[in-house]
Design a binder for these strands. Sequence first.
DNA 1: CGTTCAGTTGACGCGGTTCAATCGAAGTGG
DNA 2: CCACTTCGATTGAACCGCGTCAACTGAACG
Lengths: 257, 257
Amino acid sequence: MATHLAWHENLRAIHGAELLLRRLKAVGMLSSIEIELVRSIRQRARQVGAGAQVSPEGDGPPQPRLIISGWACRPRVLPDGRCQMLSILLPGDLIGDTGDFRPLALSPVMALTNVRTINAKPIFDAVAAEPKAYRGLALALQRLTRLEEAYLLDHVVRLGRQTALQRLAHCLLELYYRARTIGFVHGNAFTMPLTQELIGDALGLSLVHVNRTLSQLKRDGLISLGAGVLTILDVSKLAYVADYATPDTTVMAQARM
Amino acid sequence: MATHLAWHENLRAIHGAELLLRRLKAVGMLSSIEIELVRSIRQRARQVGAGAQVSPEGDGPPQPRLIISGWACRPRVLPDGRCQMLSILLPGDLIGDTGDFRPLALSPVMALTNVRTINAKPIFDAVAAEPKAYRGLALALQRLTRLEEAYLLDHVVRLGRQTALQRLAHCLLELYYRARTIGFVHGNAFTMPLTQELIGDALGLSLVHVNRTLSQLKRDGLISLGAGVLTILDVSKLAYVADYATPDTTVMAQARM
DNA sequence: CGTTCAGTTGACGCGGTTCAATCGAAGTGG
DNA sequence: CCACTTCGATTGAACCGCGTCAACTGAACG
């Protein structure tokens, strides 16, 4: 029984590395050696429940880990108890410090659902030890970091200058494209486990207004949402109201330099 | 006459390097060799008028430059013509790419007043060529980059979860501490050349509401503002309403790891 | 002496918050 | 097996922060 469980967890970990590979392949080319390295991180996963802190786990800079299942966020809590998310994290996303102590990478990560992570340090260690052998991988990892900053810049514009409808549409589209990259979208639908309160914390809106704005998007036939499954019914119309530029032309372009 | 002008510009450039030195010394320790290197960038300054683009100047990644006088910003212009600033830039701030292609560093910089910059590439070239000799400088430069990201995170919280009064108070305090670092503050007063419309673009507010909110801060005796000079009359009260944590305990702490 | 630009002020309306109540689904304990 | 609770979604009503429109001021400038 115990061995069966361990084997099961192992499978999960392999799958988790596959998610990271999809993201890396979306921003660069990897050699078969590099692909093997990423696949080699098949250690036992660590799980935390919804609401628990994922990172940092103790003192000092947080170790790099890969989210292999569940959603998380980087919350900033204000004295009055309200919360503003800096970013939303999906399976396939890397968290923790990768040696440069970026404030975003150092900021706490909180689980929004049950979250499973595996240690990603072996990847960075290998890349640091043999830069020549892992040039493509190093570049792709750096591009994922840039992508994270590009999303942050979009977030600023969203919060500063967009209406509730635009923010929501923009955010849902971002999540849609990110979910698609990791292969979670089937027929323009994907699992979106965020509650309306959490969406509010991400977009600087109240729970009630998120509800009303979501209703409007449904009424207008742009999305459908039920039982935790979000379907983008009309990508181009949604992109139009959100003022959302296709990732290829902006966010990804910035990452690809 | 021409030679006199060149000599004058030279003086300015030396002073500009001094501003960068103050910022570097605020986040790390420099050897005398490193100080000499920073002081050695005394090339002729380039000037652009208010409203003009400072960076990038042409194609490709923008070269690293140092702002030696004037204020600038990183604007994001929306299709409807409105604008959201990603950050505000003061004298002593570095702009342009430093080799890692960060989206923030690549995003356009626009002059808000007349802006003079000098080429900062020699510094980065020297650090890259002789990492051993310039370890302290490399670290300090990296910390300035982190600081920039930390300000961006604060910006997200400001825009997402703070009222107009709080945003304004928070922003003015940030500018106050940054101006103080470069030695521009005398008796809690410093030159603040931003128009109310520009402040609005930074904080996601309308011109009119910025005016009213500024009036309130004046009425409450927290600031005084006239003829482009901002005086912080009560730092601690302003920090209280802004919910502003002292830089030492937060932003700087993140940069100092 | 007109023009432009930044600041200032009033009136009005909308977008979004807050308070509050309801509802269904999913536990949870007796 | 059934209350009882909890949690997320939903909806109504009142309120208010902030945006918009518009008019006016004073200073700087040609």
